[in-house]
Design a protein around this nucleic acid. Structure first.
Length: 197
DNA sequence: AATGCGATTCTCT
DNA sequence: GAGAATCGCATTT
């Protein structure tokens, strides 16, 4: 059975949401076609005490304000002047946390004559999956429970705990003692996880 | 008003 | 493995 995840899925402890998000399907309805990708890699950002998080120090800014809102909304921002990063808010308003989607296994919405390698390269990174699905700042604050353009589906079958691998997060070496915490989760031996270690 | 850099990716070596 | 691309935003002056 197939159904869209509602807010109560996201309004839970971020690490649980991360693990349960693996194996779910991100659906992006464009004007002419619909793209679908299986979520295979995510990272948790644990709020003000997390030195890698944008909400560290607990200060609300123009960029991070949506993280201080309710769960199940899109937090999307630009890094390095060119790459969008797709995050989803979790927990209640008093816990400004979120998770980053780092890689998708493309399921639908790409040329059928792609080579295995080309399909692997389509969404195996947080910037690349946004480029593929044409996600940008216009999606800031989008509500996954009610949006007609973007949502997450369960299609039966969740990832078993034995299939989930945890590791340190990517690209946050500045985060002090938070640098080594295993807050990155991906599906074991999945060929579509991002390259960087 | 100015500065410095990033939750990345690509190219070249 | 190193360096460039490229700009909005947070922080400092």
């Amino acid at each position: 059975m197939v159904f869209r995840l509602s807010q109560d899925f996201f309004e839970r402890p971020t690490i649980e949401v991360c693990k349960d998000a693996l194996g779910k399907f991100l659906v992006r309805k464009k004007k002419k076609e619909t793209t679908v990708g299986k979520i295979v890699e995510v990272e948790a950002y644990m709020g003000p005490r997390d030195k890698a998080a944008h909400v560290r120090r607990g200060k609300v800014t123009k960029r991070n304000r949506i993280v201080f809102g309710k769960a199940g909304n899109i937090y999307i921002y630009l890094v390095y002047g060119m790459y969008w990063q797709l995050n989803i808010t979790t927990e209640r308003e008093d816990k400004p946390q979120c998770f980053l989607i780092r890689a998708l296994e493309p399921i639908q919405g790409f040329k059928q004559n792609l080579s295995q390698k080309e399909r692997r390269e389509l969404a195996n990174g947080p910037g690349k999956l946004c480029r593929w699905m044409e996600l940008d700042g216009s999606f800031y604050g989008e509500d996954l429970e009610s949006s007609s353009n973007l949502w997450i589906e369960e299609r039966g079958g969740n990832a078993k705990p034995s299939q989930i691998v945890s590791s340190p997060r990517i690209g946050i070496d500045y985060a002090g003692e938070w640098k080594d915490k295993e807050l990155r989760f991906h599906l074991k031996e999945n060929k579509f996880v991002s390259k960087r270690r």
